[in-house]
Design a protein around this nucleic acid. Sequence first.
RNA 1: GCCCCUGUGGCGGAAUUGGUAGACGCGACGGAUUCAAAAUCCGUUUCCGCAAGGAGUGUCAGUUCGAGUCUGACCAGGGGCACCA
Length: 864
Amino acid sequence: MSRYNPREAEPKWQSAWAERDAFRAGGPDAGGKPKYYVLEMFPYPSGRIHVGHSRNYTMGDVVARYKRARGFDVLHPMGWDAFGLPAENAARDRGVHPGQWTYGNIEVMRKQLQRLGLALDWSREIATCDPAYYRHQQAIFLKLLEKGLAYRKTAKVNWDPVDQTVLANEQVIDGRGWRSGAEVEQRELDQWFFRITDYADQLTDGIEALDRWPDKVRTMQSNWIGRSRGAEVRFPLTDMDLAGRFGETIDVFTTRPDTLFGASFLALAPDHPIVRALAADNPEIARFTEECARMGTTEEEIEKAPKHGVDLGIKVRHPFDESWEVPVWSANFVLSGYGTGAIFGSPAGDQRDLDFARKYGLPVNPVVLPPDADAKTHTIGDEAYTGHGTIYNSRFLDGLETPEAIERAIEELEKRDLGKGATSYRLRDWLVSRQRYWGCPIPVVHCADCGAVPVPEDQLPVTLPDDVTFDHPSNPLERHPTWKNTDCPKCGKPARRETDTLDTFVCSSWYFLRFTSPWAEDAPFKPDDAERWMPVDQYVGGIEHAILHLLYARFFTRALNDCGLMSLEGGEPFAGLFTQGMVTHETYKSSGGKWLGPDEVEDRDGALVEVATGQPVTVGAIEKMSKSKKNVVDLDAFIESYGADAARWFVLSDSPPERDVEYTDSGVEGVWRFIQRLWTTVTSLPEGAPGPDSVAANAQGDALDIRRAAHKALKSVTDSIEGFRFNSAVAQIHDLVNAVRKFEPSDEAGIAAKAEALGILVRMIAPFIPHLAEECWARLGGEGLVIDAAWPEADPALLVEDTVTLPVQVNGKRRDQIDVAKGAAEDEVKALALATDGVARATEGLTVRKVIVVPDRIVNIVAG
RNA sequence: GCCCCUGUGGCGGAAUUGGUAGACGCGACGGAUUCAAAAUCCGUUUCCGCAAGGAGUGUCAGUUCGAGUCUGACCAGGGGCACCA
């Protein structure tokens, strides 16, 4: 019995595919085929690939190979998200240049991916740190600038004191930097922004059509944009003097204009311009704003901070009643960044407003009557009523339900020219400046006379200097002695280069477009190619990008449409999205408390010990494989022992693709056993048997059964792949292997049936374990390569049984079963069911009241 | 606090439209082979029970001839958002 040796077979087939140039998209044999674009989120070249990373690429590869077999012209490219801070950290820690470190990692990781046998079109490989890539990004930046979609402003921004750079709102998690984990500070700086808020509506509305995205991601995107419909209300200032200084009205945003008659105060954010101005000559207000500025920004601090405010001593008129004066306060719970930075307090209908009103003795006037409440007795205690209801105590709004009252109030505001319907968003513009070296330089020159001047397109790319130092945490470009000195492209006078680089998320916002024509020189991509391949039909990646990357990319395709760089219908870059789960592994700690890798521990007499010291090891939680916890299994080492197919099969087995899968040695052993069993099953077919695409039309009995099993498996495996249920496909393939293994053909017809079943099996496993599939295909005498074999079609006649076994239930409990011809008449089935022993026993002493026959499924007898 | 998801054997999980719950894999147990072991092969494996039988998909109700699947309430775990007006 020969064993399958992946170490020999895998490189052989990989060379065969390469020689055949099989995975080139739009290649010579693509003519007339429909396109299919499969993409996995491209990796950051951080070092080496471990088994955890491989799950993502394997899933994409199954789809790519399957679609290829189904006759699609498949684009399945790979590249490197190569800019980023880890390269600078490596430069600082080890004294290598970030570029050298990055390209070194790329070399290693490319080899690893190739060893995994991925069906990738390597002719389209890109790296975002290559000037050939980022020059186009600079050109895109200039286009956005021209369109007004990129702009510069002074703003309070998130400053990461460890990474010494600013961060986008999306990169601040619980008040901490997403990479460094350092508490983020607020700083006022001059920075570049992308006007993503211009697309807030489109980005929200577009979510609707993304029906092949996980609901979870759609909800997260929608929440992040946070669209609220309501009204902007203008409250006229009573003091003419102040009106002269600040404008005639104070504007607030509200989602509940129906509660305007419950207004008892206005509250402005502590850093609202009016508050700042008043603080200048009012010590009490000044003290308040200083206190607020000192307030921490972390979650707990905000949670714990009591409602706090100061009376500004000014008043506004109610928009619906000139004689009604409303006091204006500043309050610590009002955010300057949302809406207009001002609210009207309607304490009966908002908990924060109520807390505030109770603390400072402001009036609480209920105006919304809950559905089951009585207007005479309804009062507000310590709890606001935030729901909808019937409006009362509100003059012309009285008696209206909340939704109508909102409309009516807006109508009245518009009539009086004191407000209008308005929409507000949680989303802020995307801050793209980073004070880092290893990123795409922003192609702008600052001139004392001309201001910020774009670098003319024919002078692109603005390349990074190589001679930089990393002995200080601040921006190496800023510290470079000469790089920033240049001449103003407009007036020619000495000027200073922009030393900020672009957020690396900009690079990943359009790389999928570059893949469609990576050789384009005078444009980021060829519009024809982009339009042929886009949108990405199936995108595969981690849930951690549910907001950041996916939102930015959706913005980018729309912005590029509007800049005239392409016309992608609908503007959505990713038609289908799949978010795969991680590979997890136990964690280990030495007696000294250090993390240990799986190869540093071993089992000695039932106890885990550290190999090097023999000391006992503590087993920790099962967590996502990560370098920091050392619970990784290196891909090369794995392939060395078990082969690439085993790695691929393992990460697809057991757990559903969207959930995590735990790496265990016994699970890997199981995979190894399966691979060997599959090989022995294939080799058990006698020499001279019909080829793998033959049809054993004359099969009877056992032989017919094995044909049926193969065709049924084919149907369910096909459905499972289409539905991204790879774990189910794996189980169904196991089933078929078990069936074929047990089948011992006794004659020619049997051998033919087995050959047919194996032929189907081998073509079905090809997307999953392609090397073994080739080896089997060759062994079975298949023509050419299995990658060029078409996906088999299940014979519908073999999918239906002639006879079916029906369970017979009495009062919903299974008591017996009967074999009947498929489609047997109801009366016949009924009679057979009632005649069974099980039914006789179970209905003893009872009267049969009703017999339910579900044709070809079940019989249920109701007795009592 | 608000929103979303998930609860099925010792474990990962299957059951796609309401129709035989536990496919497939792991582990465990028994056996064959072997001087012995590894490897391999054959069986058993939801629980209680010798068996007949009974119970069983987080809990409690409900709809239905029939519920893992549908409805309501609750419990537990996970995720997202969070002074967002």
